[in-house]
Structure formats: C-alpha cells, structure tokens
C-alpha cells in the first residue's frame, strides 16, 4: 500500500512537470496576443470589424497547434526557448521550492523530536554545505525517491550537484532523436532549478542555478551562491 501511495505521489510530480511547460507556453502566447490586441485597439479604436478580425485570427492561430493529448506546441523551438516561458517555469519551481523546503525542514525537525534522536538540530547547524547536503539527501529523496549521486564544491560558493539518473526526465524521449530530446528537456529542467533556488532562498541563500544534461538521463545542477563562506 505504501509503495502504491509513493507511486501515485511520484506520478503527480511527473504529470505536473509534463503539463507545466505547455501551460507556460500557452500563458505566454495568450499574453503576447493580448498585447497585440490592446495595441491595435489604441491605434484604431473606431475600426470594430478590424478588431474582431484580429481577435478571430489570434484565437484561431492558438487553436491550430494546441489540441488535447498532443505535443504540437512543443515542436516549435521558439516556444521552448522563449525567455518568458523559461522565466515562468523557473518561477513555478521557485514557488514550490519555497514551500517544499519549509515543509521538509519542519518534517525533519519534527521526526527528530518524535524519535528523540540525538542528531543536531538542523536549524542550528545550517551552514551552506549542510544546506546542500539537505537538498541532496532529504529534498531529493522526498521529491524523486533517490538521493543525488554527487556533490562538488570549490569552497567559494559554487556547487555542482550531480544526479546520474534524474527521475524527472528519465522517461522523456522524443521520436526525433537524442539531440532534439536533450534540446527540449532543457526547458523542463528549469523547473527543478527553480525548486532548488526556492529551497535555498527559504533558507536564506541567494543563488543562480543552471542545469545541464551530462549523459542522458544524468543531470548536473551548477549552483552559484552569493553567500560568503
């Protein structure tokens, strides 16, 4: 039963990620179209018919490549590489990270309290390396059912977290070959980047993060923190 529950939970995260990118693209496109229409409105306020035509055209254009259960929206690399889209996905992850970090922090403290363990209180012992270990071990275990495989640092605020089999993308595979697959996955990786940035932020660390596919499905997260060590 418990394995079934964790399967359902893991699937929820998978499905959330699958839906997030098309959603971000749709929202960005909608906003762009809205801008176009309001601009046109300003210029030709009297031309009602022209306005309606623009509206019609805009909605039709949206519907052509966005049908349920299909991936036509992802075929256009401009959609996936769009900065607005990336920013949106990253900030979804950031918001989730803020909350997840808080939840797990609380849960761990609570567990320790309940078990009467003699581990040092996380809150008191939170230097930057421990925070990274917290992400590698506890966060990743709770989100993806496995720990990070490797943690490297230059002791000057830069960290590299490596997951040789990142569960979030391990099932993604495009029919158009490995190169295209990796290219598309890059957009999806902004989500876990946002999560990590959110967690770090909730623990008081400012950072910028980039993810790279090393050897599919291996991913390395390059973290540059702005904290002095």
């Amino acid at each position: 039963m418990s394995s079934l529950i964790s399967e359902v939970n893991a699937t929820c995260l998978d499905l959330l990620l699958i839906e997030m990118v098309p959603l971000a693209i749709r929202v960005t496109k909608d906003l762009e179209n809205e801008n176009v229409i309001t601009k046109e409105e300003n210029f030709e306020e009297t031309d009602l018919i022209g306005k309606l035509n623009i509206k019609d055209g805009a909605t039709k254009e949206l519907n052509i490549d966005d049908k349920h259960g299909r991936i036509d929206l992802l075929e256009d690399q401009d959609n996936l590489g769009n900065n607005d889209v990336i920013y949106r996905i990253e900030s979804y992850g950031y918001n989730i990270g803020l909350r997840v970090g808080e939840l797990l922090n609380y849960k761990l403290n609570n567990d320790e309290f309940a078990n009467g363990l003699n581990r040092q209180n996380l809150k008191l012992n939170m230097d930057i390396l421990n925070i990274m270990k917290f992400i590698c071990r506890d966060i990743w275990k709770n989100l993806y059912g496995k720990q990070m495989d490797n943690l490297r640092t230059n002791h000057r605020g830069a960290f590299v977290l490596i997951d040789h089999n990142f569960k979030g993308i391990s099932k993604m595979n495009s029919a158009k070959g490995e190169e295209i697959t990796n290219e598309k996955i890059k957009t999806y990786l902004w989500f876990p980047c946002g999560i990590i940035r959110g967690i770090l932020s909730s623990l008081g660390v400012d950072s910028s993060i980039q993810a790279e596919i090393t050897q599919f499905p291996g991913v390395s997260f390059n973290i540059q923190t702005k904290m002095q060590t």
Binding site: L15, L17, I18, V21, R70, N173, I185
Partner: peptide, 9 residues
C-alpha cells in the same frame, strides 16, 4: 503516458 515529449492522442 509519462513521456512529456510524446503525444497520447
């Protein structure tokens, strides 16, 4: 189903 880069329809 869980492959974001594959359609299901």
């Amino acid at each position: 189903v869980k492959n974001a880069l594959s359609q299901i329809d």
